[in-house]
Design a protein around this nucleic acid. Structure first.
Length: 443
DNA sequence: TCTGGGGTCCTAGGACCC
DNA sequence: TCTGGGGTCCTAGGACCC
C-alpha cells in the first residue's frame, strides 16, 4: 500500500482550498519540493526543485502554485492513523516508510485477494482522507510496480493485481526502468545508453550480466522481477546510526552560534538514543559551507569523538560534540549546514564497561529522565541544557493561531531568533496532535 | 538571498593474522 | 626474503531507498 502524494494529501485533508490546485510541500528550511500534487507534476515541477525556482518560473508568471512548509508532526500522525487502519483490515503489516507498507496476503484465493485489496483502498481512504493505492504480486518489487499501475490508471480504482505469468510479462514490459524499485538514477543513466529502457529489457540480460554490473543487489532485483520473493525487510530493533543535521536559515560564521546549533543536534541524538533504549560509542560532528555559492570559499570537515563508555546522556553527548566542533571549526567560512551522527550503537544492558572510567551515571541519568518526562508532557524543549541557547528550537515549528478554516495566513509565524534556525514560512497547524490547533468549522 | 534529512547495504582495497 | 593459501577487520566510497 502506498499513499498518493502523501504530504500534499495530508495538507489537503484539513485545507480544502488546496483541492484541485497545484500544491507542493517543501523540504525543511523551505528548500525544495519533496511532495507534489498531480496538478503540480503536470506543470512540470520536478522532485527536488528549489522553492525559489518555483517562485521564479510559476508564481511570478501568475501561475497558481500553493507551497507548504513541511509539517512532520502532522504527517507522522496521519501515517500512524493509516497504518492502524491497514492493520485492522489486513493484519500482517510491515511498515516500510512513512507512506508505505507491505502486507503478506499468504496463500489466499485470487477472488479474496481482489476483495481484500479493494477493501484496504476504501477503508484507509475513508478513514484518513488520504487516497491510497494497493498493488499485489508474488514479489515486493512487482507489488510496488503494481501499485504504480494502480495509481496511474484510473480504471484500476486503486487496486492492481499481477498474478499470472502473462500479467507479469506484460507488466515488466510496460514498466520504465527508472520506476523499478532498486534501480536508481545512476544505473538508469548507464543502462539507457545501452538501450535498456524497461524492466523487461533489463531481465532479458540475464542474471550473470546483471550481477557483474550491479552486484548482488541487482541480482535480487532481477529475481524479484522474475516473480520470486527474495527481498527481506530489515526488522532490527536498533538503528545503526542516528543523525540530526540541519541547513541553516542564513549562513553562519560565528563559532558561538555553531556551538548552540551543535548542542541542539547532539541533544536530539541523545534523546533518539534513549528512545530506543540504546547508547553510542562514537559521535561525529560535521560542518559545511554552501556548495551552491561559487563566490565563497568552500570547506567541509568532520571529527569523531570516542566515548570511554557508550553514552546516551544529553550532557555527555553535548560535551563530546562541542569538543569535536572545536577540531573542525575554521574561522573565515560562511557555514550552511552542520550535523551530528552517533554510531557504534549498543542496546542498554550490553554496554562494555571501562575499567578506568568512573562516570557519575546517577547524576546524568536523573537529569535525562527528568528532562524527557517534562518534555514529553509539556512539549519538546520545554526543559533543555543552557548551552542549547535561549530558544533551543532548531526544529521548532511555530504554529499559527487556531481559527476558522480560511486557508493559510502567515501572520502566526514567529520570527526566527537565531540565524541558524530553519525557515518555515508556510507552516500548517498541528490539526491532529494539538488541542489548540483543532479546526473550527463555521456552519 | 533562496537548493532537505535520515537511513541501509555492498564492494574493493589495505592492513593484518597464521 | 620469498613462496601459496586462507582468513578477519576496518574504512571509504558508491548506490540505493523514502
Amino acid at each position: 500500500m502506498d499513499c498518493n502524494n502523501f504530504f500534499v494529501s495530508c495538507e489537503r485533508v484539513f485545507d480544502p482550498s488546496l483541492e484541485g490546485r497545484p500544491v507542493v510541500v517543501l523540504s525543511n528550511n523551505d528548500g525544495c519540493a519533496v511532495s507534489r500534487s498531480q496538478e503540480a507534476k503536470a506543470l512540470g515541477i520536478k522532485m527536488g526543485m528549489p522553492a525559489f525556482k518555483i517562485e521564479e518560473e510559476f508564481l511570478r508568471n501568475g501561475v497558481d502554485v500553493a507551497m507548504c512548509s513541511s509539517n512532520y508532526t502532522l504527517y507522522g500522525d496521519m501515517s500512524r492513523r493509516a497504518m492502524d487502519i491497514l492493520r485492522d483490515v489486513a493484519g500482517n503489516v510491515d511498515v516500510y516508510s512513512i507512506d508505505e507498507a507491505f502486507v503478506d496476503f499468504g496463500s489466499m484465493a485470487p477472488e479474496d485477494v481482489v476483495s481484500l485489496g479493494s477493501e484496504i483502498v476504501s477503508r484507509v481512504t475513508k478513514g484518513t482522507g488520504i487516497p491510497v493505492s494497493v498493488g499485489c504480486a508474488h514479489s515486493k518489487t512487482l507489488a510496488k510496480a503494481a501499485t504504480r499501475f494502480a495509481k496511474k490508471f484510473k480504471g484500476y480504482r486503486g487496486f492492481c493485481l499481477i498474478d499470472s505469468e502473462e500479467q507479469r510479462r506484460k507488466a515488466i514490459s510496460l514498466l520504465p526502468l527508472e520506476d523499478v524499485w532498486g534501480i536508481g538514477y545512476r544505473s538508469v543513466k548507464k543502462f539507457s545508453a545501452m538501450g535498456i529502457l524497461t524492466a523487461a529489457d533489463f531481465v532479458e540480460k540475464g542474471p550473470y550480466w546483471i550481477k557483474q554490473r550491479m552486484g548482488v543487489c541487482g541480482l535480487r532485483t532481477y529475481e524479484e522481477l522474475m516473480g520470486r520473493d527474495v527481498i527481506r525487510l530489515d526488522h532490527r530493533q536498533l538503528k545503526q546510526t542516528i543523525t540530526t543535521s540541519r541547513s541553516f536559515g542564513e549562513l553562519v560564521s560565528d563559532i558561538g552560534q555553531l556551538k548552540t546549533a551543535v548542542s541542539n543536534f547532539a541533544s536530539s541524538c541523545a534523546r533518539k538514543l534513549r528512545a530506543q533504549n540504546s547508547s553510542a560509542l562514537y559521535a561525529t560532528v560535521f560542518l559545511m559551507t554552501s556548495f551552491f555559492r561559487e563566490d565563497l570559499p568552500q570547506y567541509y570537515n568532520r571529527a569523531v569523538v570516542e566515548f570511554p563508555e557508550a553514552e546516551d546522556s544529553s550532557i555527555g553527548l553535548v560535551e563530546g560534540c562541542l569538543e569535536a566542533l572545536e577540531k573542525v571549526y575554521r574561522p573565515g567560512y560562511a557555514y550552511k549546514k552542520a550535523g551530528v551522527t552517533v554510531s557504534g550503537i549498543v542496546p542498554d544492558g550490553h554496554i562494555q564497561q571501562n575499567l578506568y572510567y568512573q562516570p557519575d551515571y546517577e547524576r546524568n541519568r536523573k537529569i535525562d529522565l527528568l528532562m524527557d518526562e517534562v518534555n514529553r508532557r509539556y512539549g519538546r524543549s520545554t526543559l533543555h541544557l543552557a548551552v542549547q541557547g535561549e530558544s533551543a528550537v532548531f526544529n521548532r515549528r511555530v504554529r499559527k493561531p487556531a481559527g476558522v478554516l480560511q486557508g493559510k495566513t502567515s501572520s502566526g509565524i514567529a520570527e526566527r531568533k537565531e540565524k541558524w534556525e530553519m525557515r518555515c514560512e508556510h507552516l500548517s497547524r498541528n490539526y491532529t496532535t494539538d488541542l489548540n490547533d483543532v479546526i473550527t468549522v463555521c456552519c
